[in-house]
C-alpha cells in the first residue's frame, strides 16, 4: 500500500497562486483594453484650461493618473467579487485545496494583480503622453519627476484597498446572500438618514497625515479586510450548485 502524500501548506498555496493567475489572466487583458479606451476618451486631458491675451492663446491640458487609478480600483473591486461567484468558483477547484489555502492564494493573486494594475495605469498615462508629444508635437511639462516611488506606492495601495473591499463584500455575499443585501441596504440608509458622509471621515483618516502614514494605514486596513474575509469563508462548506 502506498504511503500518504505529505505536501506542505506553502507548496499548495504557491501552486494555487500559479494556476489561479493563469485562470484569471483574461481579466488583465480586459483591464488593458478598458484603460486604452479611456485614454482615447481622455486624450484631450482630464482638465483643460485656456486663456488668451492679445494674439497669444494658451491652452493647458492636464493629464493626471486619476482616471486610470479609479478605473483600476473599480476593476479590482469587481474581480475580487467575481472571484467568489459561482461563475468562477475560484475556491472550489478540483485540486488539492482547503479554505485557508484557497483564500490565501486568492489574496496573493489580488496583491499581484493590484501591482500589475498599478503598472498598467502608469504605462497607459505615459504612453498617452508620449504619443501626444510625438504625434501632436505639443510641449509637455511635468509637475513632478516622471516617476516617483511614492506615487506608485500610493496608487498601489488605493487599488489594493479596492480589491480588499471587493473581496470582503464577495465573502459576505457568499456566506449569506441575505446578509450581504442587508449590509448594502444598511449602508445606503445610514448615509441617507444620518446625513453623515462616512466617506469624508474615511478620507480624513487616511489622507490627512502624509504619504507614508497613509500607506501604512492602507496596508493595515487591507490586511484587516483580507483576514476578515478569510475568517468568514473558513467555515463554509463546498457548494457547487
Amino acid at each position: 500500500m502506498m504511503s500518504l502524500n505529505e505536501i506542505s501548506f506553502s507548496q499548495i498555496v504557491l501552486n494555487q497562486v500559479k494556476w489561479k493567475m493563469k485562470a484569471y489572466s483574461q481579466s488583465i487583458i480586459i483591464l488593458i483594453l478598458i484603460q486604452i479606451t479611456v485614454s482615447i476618451l481622455f486624450s484631450g486631458g482630464n482638465i483643460t484650461m485656456g486663456g488668451g491675451f492679445n494674439e497669444v492663446n494658451i491652452n493647458i491640458h492636464y493629464y493626471t493618473l486619476d482616471s486610470y487609478i479609479i478605473l483600476s480600483c473599480i476593476w479590482a473591486l469587481v474581480i475580487a467579487i467575481l472571484m467568489q461567484t459561482n461563475g468562477y468558483r475560484h475556491d472550489d477547484y478540483a485540486v488539492i485545496t482547503t479554505r485557508y489555502t484557497a483564500s490565501l492564494a486568492n489574496v496573493i493573486v489580488l496583491f499581484v494583480y493590484s501591482f500589475i494594475a498599478t503598472i498598467i495605469s502608469f504605462m497607459t498615462l505615459y504612453i498617452l503622453i508620449a504619443l501626444i508629444q510625438v504625434v501632436g508635437n505639443i510641449a509637455v511639462m511635468k509637475e513632478y519627476t516622471l516617476f516617483e516611488f511614492v506615487h506608485f506606492g500610493l496608487a498601489f495601495f488605493i487599488i489594493l484597498l479596492a480589491a480588499s473591499i471587493g473581496y470582503l463584500i464577495g465573502s459576505i455575499f457568499k456566506l449569506s446572500k441575505g446578509l450581504g443585501i442587508l449590509m448594502v441596504v444598511l449602508a445606503v440608509i445610514f448615509t441617507a438618514i444620518l446625513n453623515v458622509q462616512p466617506e469624508a471621515l474615511l478620507v480624513n483618516f487616511f489622507f490627512n497625515t502624509g504619504y507614508l502614514s497613509f500607506m501604512l494605514k492602507a496596508l493595515f486596513t487591507c490586511i484587516l479586510l483580507f483576514v476578515s474575509s478569510i475568517f468568514i469563508l473558513s467555515r463554509k462548506e463546498v457548494n457547487r450548485r
Binding site: 502524500n5 505529505e6 489561479k20 468562477y88 477547484y93 489555502t101
Partner: peptide, 20 residues
C-alpha cells in the same frame, strides 16, 4: 478543511469544477 486529507483524497463527481 484538512490539508492532510485533502492531499490524499480525490473526489470525482459531476459538479467537479475546473478553471473556466
Amino acid at each position: 478543511n484538512n490539508l492532510k486529507t485533502a492531499s490524499n483524497i480525490m473526489f470525482v463527481e459531476e459538479g467537479m469544477t475546473f478553471p473556466p
